[in-house]
Protein backbone atom coordinates (compact mmCIF):
# COMPACT_ATOMS: atom_id res chain seq x y z
CA UNK A 1 0.00 0.00 0.00
CA UNK A 2 1.16 3.53 -0.69
CA UNK A 3 0.20 6.90 0.69
CA UNK A 4 -0.90 9.71 -1.62
CA UNK A 5 0.89 12.23 0.56
CA UNK A 6 4.35 10.73 0.50
CA UNK A 7 7.17 10.41 -1.98
CA UNK A 8 6.65 11.14 -5.67
CA UNK A 9 2.85 10.90 -5.35
CA UNK A 10 2.69 14.13 -3.39
CA UNK A 11 4.13 15.84 -6.48
CA UNK A 12 1.29 14.39 -8.58
CA UNK A 13 -1.15 16.71 -6.84
CA UNK A 14 0.71 19.76 -8.11
CA UNK A 15 0.84 18.01 -11.49
CA UNK A 16 -2.96 17.58 -11.50
CA UNK A 17 -3.63 21.19 -10.55
CA UNK A 18 -1.20 22.70 -13.08
CA UNK A 19 -2.38 20.32 -15.81
CA UNK A 20 -6.01 21.18 -15.09
CA UNK A 21 -5.36 24.94 -15.44
CA UNK A 22 -3.34 24.37 -18.65
CA UNK A 23 -6.17 22.19 -19.99
CA UNK A 24 -8.77 24.88 -19.28
CA UNK A 25 -6.60 27.50 -21.05
CA UNK A 26 -6.16 25.20 -24.03
CA UNK A 27 -9.91 24.52 -24.15
CA UNK A 28 -10.63 28.27 -24.11
CA UNK A 29 -8.24 28.85 -27.05
CA UNK A 30 -9.85 25.93 -28.91
CA UNK A 31 -13.38 27.26 -28.38
CA UNK A 32 -12.41 30.79 -29.46
CA UNK A 33 -10.73 29.46 -32.62
CA UNK A 34 -13.59 27.10 -33.47
CA UNK A 35 -16.16 29.84 -32.94
CA UNK A 36 -14.19 32.13 -35.28
CA UNK A 37 -13.93 29.35 -37.88
CA UNK A 38 -17.69 28.70 -37.70
CA UNK A 39 -18.42 32.35 -38.40
CA UNK A 40 -16.23 32.68 -41.48
CA UNK A 41 -15.93 29.03 -42.57
CA UNK A 42 -12.14 28.88 -42.24
CA UNK A 43 -10.45 25.49 -42.46
CA UNK A 44 -7.23 26.95 -40.98
CA UNK A 45 -8.95 28.14 -37.81
CA UNK A 46 -10.82 24.82 -37.55
CA UNK A 47 -7.53 22.92 -37.62
CA UNK A 48 -5.95 25.31 -35.10
CA UNK A 49 -9.00 24.85 -32.85
CA UNK A 50 -8.89 21.04 -33.17
CA UNK A 51 -5.16 21.03 -32.31
CA UNK A 52 -5.79 22.94 -29.08
CA UNK A 53 -8.93 20.89 -28.40
CA UNK A 54 -6.94 17.63 -28.54
CA UNK A 55 -4.34 19.14 -26.20
CA UNK A 56 -7.15 20.18 -23.84
CA UNK A 57 -8.79 16.73 -23.96
CA UNK A 58 -5.44 15.07 -23.22
CA UNK A 59 -4.58 17.41 -20.33
CA UNK A 60 -8.04 17.48 -18.74
CA UNK A 61 -8.59 13.73 -19.05
CA UNK A 62 -5.18 13.04 -17.50
CA UNK A 63 -5.76 15.54 -14.71
CA UNK A 64 -9.20 14.09 -13.91
CA UNK A 65 -8.22 10.44 -14.21
CA UNK A 66 -5.00 10.86 -12.21
CA UNK A 67 -6.87 12.69 -9.46
CA UNK A 68 -9.44 9.86 -9.49
CA UNK A 69 -6.61 7.35 -9.26
CA UNK A 70 -5.06 9.26 -6.37
CA UNK A 71 -8.25 9.01 -4.36
CA UNK A 72 -8.13 5.21 -4.66
CA UNK A 73 -4.44 5.04 -3.85
CA UNK A 74 -4.90 3.61 -0.38
CA UNK A 75 -7.04 0.77 -1.73
CA UNK A 76 -4.78 -0.53 -4.49
CA UNK A 77 -1.27 -1.92 -4.60
CA UNK A 78 1.69 0.04 -5.90
CA UNK A 79 1.93 -2.22 -8.97
CA UNK A 80 -1.75 -1.67 -9.78
CA UNK A 81 -1.39 2.08 -9.29
CA UNK A 82 1.67 2.32 -11.52
CA UNK A 83 0.18 0.12 -14.25
CA UNK A 84 -2.99 2.24 -14.35
CA UNK A 85 -0.85 5.37 -14.45
CA UNK A 86 1.11 3.85 -17.33
CA UNK A 87 -2.08 3.20 -19.33
CA UNK A 88 -3.27 6.76 -18.69
CA UNK A 89 0.09 8.09 -19.89
CA UNK A 90 -0.21 6.10 -23.14
CA UNK A 91 -3.72 7.47 -23.82
CA UNK A 92 -2.57 10.98 -22.93
CA UNK A 93 0.47 10.73 -25.20
CA UNK A 94 -1.50 9.46 -28.21
CA UNK A 95 -4.13 12.25 -27.96
CA UNK A 96 -1.55 14.94 -27.40
CA UNK A 97 0.69 13.80 -30.25
CA UNK A 98 -2.41 13.80 -32.50
CA UNK A 99 -2.85 17.48 -31.60
CA UNK A 100 0.80 18.22 -32.45
CA UNK A 101 0.51 16.40 -35.77
CA UNK A 102 -2.41 18.67 -36.64
CA UNK A 103 -0.19 21.69 -35.83
CA UNK A 104 2.58 20.25 -38.03
CA UNK A 105 0.12 19.73 -40.89
CA UNK A 106 -1.25 23.24 -40.41
CA UNK A 107 2.18 24.89 -40.52
CA UNK A 108 3.37 22.64 -43.35
CA UNK A 109 0.28 23.77 -45.30
CA UNK A 110 1.42 27.38 -45.10
CA UNK A 111 4.74 26.54 -46.78
CA UNK A 112 3.10 26.80 -50.18
CA UNK A 113 5.29 24.10 -51.71
CA UNK A 114 3.03 21.16 -52.56
CA UNK A 115 5.87 18.63 -52.41
CA UNK A 116 7.05 19.72 -48.96
CA UNK A 117 3.44 19.89 -47.82
CA UNK A 118 2.78 16.29 -48.82
CA UNK A 119 6.00 14.87 -47.38
CA UNK A 120 6.38 16.59 -44.03
CA UNK A 121 3.62 14.79 -42.09
CA UNK A 122 4.72 11.23 -42.96
CA UNK A 123 8.29 12.26 -42.07
CA UNK A 124 7.08 13.56 -38.72
CA UNK A 125 5.36 10.24 -38.03
CA UNK A 126 8.36 8.23 -39.23
CA UNK A 127 10.65 9.80 -36.64
CA UNK A 128 8.44 8.42 -33.86
CA UNK A 129 10.37 7.78 -30.70
CA UNK A 130 8.98 5.64 -27.91
CA UNK A 131 9.75 8.51 -25.62
CA UNK A 132 6.69 10.71 -25.98
CA UNK A 133 8.43 13.76 -24.57
CA UNK A 134 11.32 13.58 -27.02
CA UNK A 135 8.95 12.94 -29.92
CA UNK A 136 6.76 15.89 -28.91
CA UNK A 137 9.77 18.19 -28.60
CA UNK A 138 10.96 17.17 -32.10
CA UNK A 139 7.47 17.76 -33.54
CA UNK A 140 7.22 21.15 -31.89
CA UNK A 141 10.63 22.22 -33.15
CA UNK A 142 9.15 22.64 -36.63
CA UNK A 143 6.24 24.72 -35.27
CA UNK A 144 8.69 26.86 -33.24
CA UNK A 145 10.75 27.44 -36.40
CA UNK A 146 7.65 28.51 -38.38
CA UNK A 147 6.36 30.84 -35.67
CA UNK A 148 9.86 32.34 -35.27
CA UNK A 149 9.90 33.12 -39.01
CA UNK A 150 6.44 34.68 -38.70
CA UNK A 151 7.50 36.81 -35.75
CA UNK A 152 10.79 37.96 -37.31
CA UNK A 153 9.48 38.57 -40.82
CA UNK A 154 6.15 40.24 -40.20
CA UNK A 155 6.74 41.82 -36.77
CA UNK A 156 3.05 41.42 -36.09
CA UNK A 157 1.66 42.39 -32.71
CA UNK A 158 1.66 39.42 -30.35
CA UNK A 159 3.31 37.05 -32.85
CA UNK A 160 6.16 37.03 -30.29
CA UNK A 161 3.71 35.65 -27.76
CA UNK A 162 2.82 32.71 -30.02
CA UNK A 163 6.50 32.06 -30.81
CA UNK A 164 7.44 32.18 -27.13
CA UNK A 165 4.42 30.00 -26.28
CA UNK A 166 5.48 27.21 -28.66
CA UNK A 167 9.13 27.55 -27.55
CA UNK A 168 8.13 27.09 -23.91
CA UNK A 169 5.81 24.22 -24.83
CA UNK A 170 8.77 22.52 -26.52
CA UNK A 171 10.88 23.37 -23.45
CA UNK A 172 8.29 21.78 -21.18
CA UNK A 173 8.64 18.45 -23.02
CA UNK A 174 12.43 18.62 -22.71
CA UNK A 175 12.00 19.37 -19.03
CA UNK A 176 9.65 16.35 -18.62
CA UNK A 177 12.24 14.27 -20.43
CA UNK A 178 14.77 15.21 -17.74
CA UNK A 179 12.38 14.51 -14.88
CA UNK A 180 14.14 11.18 -14.21
CA UNK A 181 17.14 13.21 -13.08
CA UNK A 182 15.20 15.38 -10.65
CA UNK A 183 11.64 16.23 -9.70
CA UNK A 184 12.57 19.88 -10.20
CA UNK A 185 12.44 19.24 -13.96
CA UNK A 186 9.04 17.59 -13.56
CA UNK A 187 7.56 20.64 -11.84
CA UNK A 188 9.43 23.02 -14.15
CA UNK A 189 7.84 21.21 -17.11
CA UNK A 190 4.35 21.79 -15.77
CA UNK A 191 5.04 25.41 -14.92
CA UNK A 192 6.58 26.03 -18.36
CA UNK A 193 3.58 24.35 -20.02
CA UNK A 194 1.19 26.56 -18.06
CA UNK A 195 3.14 29.73 -19.00
CA UNK A 196 3.11 28.71 -22.68
CA UNK A 197 -0.67 28.25 -22.69
CA UNK A 198 -1.08 31.53 -20.82
CA UNK A 199 0.89 33.24 -23.61
CA UNK A 200 -1.34 31.68 -26.32
CA UNK A 201 -4.47 32.66 -24.44
CA UNK A 202 -3.12 36.17 -23.88
CA UNK A 203 -2.47 36.61 -27.63
CA UNK A 204 -5.89 35.25 -28.64
CA UNK A 205 -7.78 37.33 -26.06
CA UNK A 206 -5.93 40.54 -26.96
CA UNK A 207 -6.74 40.05 -30.66
CA UNK A 208 -10.38 39.26 -29.86
CA UNK A 209 -10.67 42.33 -27.59
CA UNK A 210 -9.08 44.56 -30.25
CA UNK A 211 -11.59 43.34 -32.82
CA UNK A 212 -14.36 44.52 -30.50
CA UNK A 213 -12.64 47.90 -30.25
CA UNK A 214 -11.82 47.55 -26.55
Amino acid sequence: MISPLTGPFAILRADVLLEMISGIFSLTIALLSLEASRRIGSKTLTQLGIGFLLMAVAMLSRALSVSGLLTSVGEISRIEFLSQLFVLEIIYSVIRVAGYIIFIYLYASTMGDAHKKASIVPKAIAIYNPSFELFSAILLFFVVYRTALNWMSAKRHFAWSVFLGFTLLMGSHISFLLSNISFIFYLAGHITQLISLTLFLFAVIVVRLNEKGI
Binding site: I40, L48, T110, T147, R156, N210
Partner: peptide, 20 residues
Protein backbone atom coordinates in the same frame (compact mmCIF):
# COMPACT_ATOMS: atom_id res chain seq x y z
CA UNK B 1 -20.63 41.90 -42.21
CA UNK B 2 -18.83 38.74 -43.38
CA UNK B 3 -15.92 40.77 -44.72
CA UNK B 4 -15.57 42.67 -41.45
CA UNK B 5 -15.50 39.40 -39.49
CA UNK B 6 -13.05 37.89 -41.95
CA UNK B 7 -10.63 40.80 -41.51
CA UNK B 8 -10.83 40.49 -37.73
CA UNK B 9 -10.22 36.73 -37.68
CA UNK B 10 -7.46 37.11 -40.22
CA UNK B 11 -5.50 38.95 -37.49
CA UNK B 12 -5.98 35.95 -35.19
CA UNK B 13 -4.60 33.57 -37.83
CA UNK B 14 -1.71 35.91 -38.61
CA UNK B 15 -0.36 36.07 -35.07
CA UNK B 16 -0.06 32.28 -35.33
CA UNK B 17 1.72 32.75 -38.68
CA UNK B 18 -1.19 31.22 -40.61
CA UNK B 19 -3.16 32.29 -43.67
CA UNK B 20 -6.94 31.98 -43.79
Amino acid sequence: KFLEEFRRFEKLAKIFGLEL
